[in-house]
Design a binder for these strands. Structure first.
Lengths: 335, 335
DNA sequence: CTGTTAGCGCTTTCAA
DNA sequence: TTGAAAGCGCTAACAG
């Protein structure tokens, strides 16, 4: 709180506060000479504008909020990176909040944000999503863009990836590798993201005349150990020769379980996972991944949000779908 | 901007704005009955206080800033996670900024933050640190805590890990594994973090009667490919049997180079890296790591910052040093 | 081109 | 226990 404010500058320069304010904003109404004087003194005294005052006055905050389930997640941290880049371009600040996959925290957060604290929101919703009620009011009050994870019953701007197609292609890839029994590790069951991935898997099977089997579909749960036990049980009981992990965290138990059961990847069982893990190629053996363009998604979502904030004409339910990349890395499993 | 404000509540309740404000803050001066009425209406109309107005008035922002080199980094994203947890406990908001390892961006940022936008700052400085001048002013104006990466010439509160000891122990570990020629991949050369790690390595060598060799020390550069080439060159020319990577990103070129040169890890060369990579145990072969308690560091740093904000008695140069963990994972290199 | 005035929404004296 | 009034720092309308 450098107590040097506009009033002080005005006093020192024998000008009015209004003139100083205008000069600082490089207004066309102010003479070059006056501007120079103001700028010089502002610099000399290291004047820093008080954002709260100007926000209060202008009813805008030059701040956006990003709400994600977790920051410590390869996808989200990269997306935030992209968002941050665009925000800086617009001289905006970025508030980051985590829901830790809890809708309750999401609701509490959104309530807090309705106070005009931010001009817009970028959100990827919590996985235990059930009730989208809290968004109904929100979207009438604040520009909002959903990225990656969204509520289907809310008409809003969304930036997602080709979840259906990429799961479909991944499954087809396993079929092409002669897998006969392809299991699926399901997550985000409540969200369109999860539903589409599952649908892609199921349709790809059907397309190849393979009858899907409920027993080959494992539902993710919060407990890491339980996930591990489930996958291990699956491998023992049903001996699948292919597995699709619908989120990164579910690929890990596959590796551990295969190791414990002396199963060879990919000789005995091939694994494909949705993942933004940088070191996927270095895993033992390399993990074949469906990689979402996280950084790009962040950039796109932020760009659209700023278009709305700047009143560019954007459809209120504009949807952008980016492409994921299937990175096939099959090794013999011996190396 | 729910246009329901204190004035509106006051009008509706036939009270003055002052009374409503006091009631909302549960002031002892207000009758229970009035409080009840105010709370009821506030809830009914979904009143949300305007932070900017109250911040302006109270000269505090209920917001802290976190400045990190990158969000998409296993250490920093986990640290942010810890910070966020503590901030929520105190009902504070968290602004996140990235410097992308550029001191210039750091300086620009800090200037922006001097406007009273935040009540305190948690920072891990950019790696090309050279000039700490911009902090000299900052620390006189705002409570600030350095975590992990700091400027040595600034008297400030710091939360770090045992960089010297952990590098020392890692080197000793390699010596104990019969390594005779231990290389070091140096990073963060300008920072105490990097200097201490290097010193730990050098002292451990000396302690074992091993003469250190400049040629075995490779300096990190921004270019990934160049790092790879350097490491490859090191392996070809000097054939080290042990390598310490002082940051996670430098472990990767080791893996790639060894692979290209048909060198077996750890049979031909053992690798230890500072790293917070969750999948380190799954790498081909497993990576032995020095893991910093990132989440804990974030929590500690934030906790100390809030102690300062709440005027608890804290030494102006309190330093906290947490312990890293050496996670040894040696495999035959055949699996 | 510059100044005057008013007010953003809230909190805090001071007075009743 | 409540109200009136002032002001945090800034900017926008209006006037000159």
């Amino acid at each position: 709180m450098g107590s040097v404010n506009i009033k002080k500058l005005a006093l020192e320069l024998n000008l009015s506060a209004a003139t100083v304010s205008r000069a600082l904003h490089d207004s066309y109404e102010i003479s070059t000479e006056t501007k120079q004087r103001v700028w010089a003194l502002a610099k000399a005294l290291n004047y820093q504008p008080n954002h709260f005052a100007s926000n209060l006055r202008q009813q805008k905050s030059m701040t956006i909020a990003v709400i994600v389930p977790e920051v410590a997640n390869n996808f989200f941290s990269q997306a935030i990176n992209g968002i941050e880049e665009i925000a800086r371009l617009h001289d905006y600040h970025v508030l980051i909040y985590q829901t830790h996959e809890s809708t309750e925290k999401e609701i509490a957060l959104i309530k807090r944000l309705l106070s005009g604290r931010v001009d817009g929101i970028l959100i990827s919703v919590a996985s235990n999503a059930n009730d989208s009620e809290h968004f109904k009011e929100l979207i009438t009050q604040l520009p909002l863009v959903f990225f990656d994870r969204l509520y289907e019953d809310i008409e809003a701007i969304t930036v997602t990836t080709d979840d259906y197609e990429s799961a479909f292609n991944a499954t087809q890839h396993l079929v092409d590798c002669n897998c006969k029994k392809i299991a699926y590790l399901q997550a985000l069951n409540n969200l369109s993201t999860g539903k589409k991935r599952l649908a892609g898997y199921l349709d790809a099977l059907k397309n190849n005349g393979i009858i899907s089997d409920e027993a080959l579909i494992i539902k993710n749960c919060d407990d890491e150990n339980k996930n591990y036990e489930q996958v291990k049980g699956l491998l023992i009981t049903h001996k699948p020769d292919g597995i699709i992990a619908s989120i990164e965290d579910l690929a890990l138990p596959c590796y551990y379980a295969c190791n414990d059961l002396n199963l060879n990847i990919p000789a005995d069982v091939k694994i494909v996972s949705f993942s933004n893990l940088k070191t996927a190629p270095l895993l033992k053996p390399s993990l074949t991944t469906i990689t979402q363009p996280a950084f790009q998604i962040g950039k796109e979502a932020a760009t659209i949000l700023f278009s709305v904030l700047n009143k560019k004409d954007i459809q209120p339910n504009e949807t952008k779908v980016l492409k994921s990349t299937l990175m096939i890395r099959e090794s013999t499993g011996m190396g």
